[in-house]
């Protein structure tokens, strides 16, 4: 981004050095359904932030906007100081080209509720394909790193299996390894255990706890696992109807929330 470009009204020029993600007046509609309404929020580098809130409140939409699976109707999103779906050209903010978006997106990894492993690739190749063909790592480097990650998620012996031969919990752990192999600055986690049989949830959460404690990766997490959220979160955001109605430390939000709506929600899910 050029340093001499003139900020326009849309641009928030004040960027804190440690701010990794910023939503600036983001509005997202599906038809007449306004899902996010002038949403402002930011996430600082290295923090673990959990989004909670009732179903349909727009949590998934936020993560999908960040992953560029959706684009905002209004407002801007910045990641690492770069606009995600916009580009500055001649001092003006214009919709970004595919190439710019892909560059910024390389900093972001995502784990999906339904795993979404590639069934046509064995486990190892699921993990190495993007590092080799997107980041340009050598095959050996990528293989070595993938095997380390598989060990880390407890699946060192499954490198040569196809995804269809794994349980849901194993598939989700591979999906986590696949996302980490891209060395993203931020990891998006959208209810990653809610498609799993109850007995497989703990294994996946343990892997995520380990990552949260042993790396400095930024995590943005949507979950209904409140104990997990309490363990890993530096900050919890309570969403309702596309707005942040309350935010604070895990202790504060789970222990003594200010808002009646937060209290109601927590008593319903806990």
């Amino acid at each position: 981004m050029s340093a001499d470009s003139t900020p326009t009204d849309n641009i928030n020029p004040a960027v804190d050095g440690s701010e990794l993600i910023r939503f600036d007046k983001v509005t997202k509609r599906f038809g007449s359904n306004v899902v996010l309404d002038n949403l402002d929020f930011s996430v600082n580098s290295g923090k673990h932030v959990t989004l909670i809130g009732p179903s349909g409140s727009g949590k998934t939409t936020i993560l999908r906007l960040l992953m560029t699976l959706l684009s905002p109707d209004e407002g801007t999103i910045k990641v690492g100081g770069e606009y995600l779906t916009h580009e500055e050209r001649g001092g003006k903010l214009v919709p970004a080209g595919e190439k710019h978006t892909r560059e910024v997106r390389k900093n972001i990894g995502m784990v999906f509720q339904q795993f979404n492993l590639f069934p046509n690739m064995k486990v190892l190749r699921n993990i190495t394909e993007a590092p080799v063909h997107v980041l340009g790592l050598s095959k050996d480097e990528a293989d070595e790193r993938a095997r380390e990650l598989l060990d880390q998620v407890g699946l060192g012996d499954k490198a040569d299996a196809y995804p269809s031969q794994l349980s849901g919990g194993q598939q989700q752990r591979v999906a986590i390894a696949r996302a980490l192999a891209m060395r993203p600055q931020v990891l998006l986690l959208d209810e990653v255990t809610s498609a799993l049989d109850p007995e497989l949830v703990a294994g996946v959460l343990d892997v995520l706890r380990d990552i949260a404690h042993s790396t400095d990766i930024t995590m943005l997490c949507v979950t209904h696992e409140m104990n997990f959220a309490r363990d890993i979160s530096d900050q919890v955001l309570m969403f309702d109807s596309g707005r942040v109605i309350e935010s604070g430390s895990a202790e504060k939000i789970f222990g003594d929330p200010d808002h009646e709506r937060t209290r109601e929600f927590l008593s319903a899910v806990l």
């Binding site: 992953m67 560029t68 699976l69 046509n120 394909e129 063909h133 997107v134 996302a179």
Partner: peptide
């Protein structure tokens, strides 16, 4: 082919051509 497969490809920053060649066509 499930749209989620293409989304997983986008999340890994594959180009459209790579998504087609590596993910969509083989399936």
């Amino acid at each position: 082919v499930a749209p989620a497969q293409r989304e997983a490809g986008i999340a890994l920053s594959f180009t459209s051509a790579q998504q087609l060649r590596k993910i969509i066509l083989p399936q």
